[in-house]
Design a protein around this nucleic acid. Sequence first.
DNA 1: CTGTTAGCGCTTTCAC
DNA 2: GTGAAAGCGCTAACAG
Lengths: 326, 326
Amino acid sequence: MEVAEAAGVSASTVSRILNGTARVSADKRKAVEKAIVDLNFTPNVLAQSLKRGQSKTIGVITQAVDSPFFTETLKGIEDGISGSGFAALIVSGHWNPDEEAERVGLLMARKVDGIIIVSGNIPDDQIVRFSEHVPMVATGHGCESDRLRAIRVDNVWGGYRATKHLIELGHRQIAHIAGIPTLTDATDRLAGYKQALEEAGIPYNDALVVQGDFRESGGLLCANQLLDRGVPFTALFAANDQTAYGARLAFFRRGIRVPDDISLIGFDDLPGSPYTTPPLTTIRQPVYEIGRMAAAAMLALIGNKPFKIEPPQLELTIRETTRRLR
Amino acid sequence: MEVAEAAGVSASTVSRILNGTARVSADKRKAVEKAIVDLNFTPNVLAQSLKRGQSKTIGVITQAVDSPFFTETLKGIEDGISGSGFAALIVSGHWNPDEEAERVGLLMARKVDGIIIVSGNIPDDQIVRFSEHVPMVATGHGCESDRLRAIRVDNVWGGYRATKHLIELGHRQIAHIAGIPTLTDATDRLAGYKQALEEAGIPYNDALVVQGDFRESGGLLCANQLLDRGVPFTALFAANDQTAYGARLAFFRRGIRVPDDISLIGFDDLPGSPYTTPPLTTIRQPVYEIGRMAAAAMLALIGNKPFKIEPPQLELTIRETTRRLR
DNA sequence: CTGTTAGCGCTTTCAC
DNA sequence: GTGAAAGCGCTAACAG
């Protein structure tokens, strides 16, 4: 390499200094260090990777980089690997299992040292199969194996807790805007809703449940639908905060006051939720912490170190969109 | 390579088939294709890159992956390069010039084929210097050179247009919560605010301007500050939507109605802004389009193709937080 | 302590 | 059309 020549030593010596692999005499070290600065030299990570068989890169598959929900997790991952010498290669799967699988291929071709998959629609058994080739960490999935760690919150509990909060406030007619039915996050929350209802002896009413899409526009649409059905309700549990935002606007449009006329609870606790008017009561999901945990688990997996995943806890965050009935 | 052996041909032939570099007889092609499928072979991109001297990777430096403002641009970039065979390596600089410079180094060490830098605090001349080593596209910067393209919106115009909208509605006492003063985005918007005032013959009043931080919490704080000063105002121009959200909450807390008592206008048009209550009037910034354009410009730069950057236009988006005075 | 040698997986002349 | 050979930039034995 160029530096070696300039410093009058062999390439090996330069490599040794760069990596601290072995002791080098002080004078040669000086010469090499000078040459490195003079030539503004940076080792070619590609060549290093090819040689070492690992690329110091962690692949991350997210679903939509534009959703605040994912970006918080991304930030956690980023913070978690920062300083470790690894970099994150981020790609999106857009909730499409085929696309996700293709992305996994893309990442493997780049010889990433591990893949973190943030939520998504890939079947669990396929993830297990992938993990035979490369260490994986999956959030929002339940499966584990030798080289696969899963991080998942208890969405059933979350749906249950949200609904129970409403019930505790005296509500009995509680509507629900569900999420995308193919995602277990959504169906789990719905299951929790039903469970809380049943526990309180409130019969489940199909007319009070409508299917959204986890986005604001869906929330707006669904709330209107709910209202148009004419079945009265005093509280609404939205499957996520974005849905709640949309529903909130629907209510606003019709002059329905929150929480005076209808109590509203969301799910996620997005960064914007403390700043809605009024601030949104919600189930806080520790997305940032999930990201950090995913990163830590991956680093441990790569380094063959033990790591215990503490399942992150959901938390009822009471703000001002829910109130006691009467 | 393994595939070559399995198919009974040389590595060169496999390479030729993989890249379509030369004609290969049909039978060998068949054999190789079969072997590829059988062995589930994917070429090692690292080795390819090392050989070819380009990595099929575009580095992206963003400032904070958790801000909706940046993630929209990121999505645009991602969509823009998808299908081109390139992948995006995303890192954040956190508004810290030193950190940004270090990240550029990290990306260069990985031999990225180009770097897109999304906003940030690196001095322009340093970007020019970087661009001597690797093609660059910078958003929010003005400098251009041989291997450097810049994409920037006219923030002065935006600040001017926002303020003028308020003036057209009859407002004369217009407050402003500014952004981070080290960012030209912020100072430009402030300049536009002053310009509109001057044009309308309204004297600039220091007591009506306070410095925020482009975030909700800052907006809340600053709006309270403004209110506490006791200098009356009927309209507020917030330097970005997040600031507007915070200010909106401050007003809500004090029973000040928007837009009945105070008109409010933001800047950016974040995905959530059409869903605030009431929906936020703002200056729409085409962040997604900026991302796409950055990607297209980069691809053109890499391919040595000509590309004309159409400076993206800001647009006054009137919704329901501003109204005519009286 | 340090230089020599071989090779990571691929592409690309250069012959045949 | 196709194989042999060289080499991208680096690291890791292996000798000294």
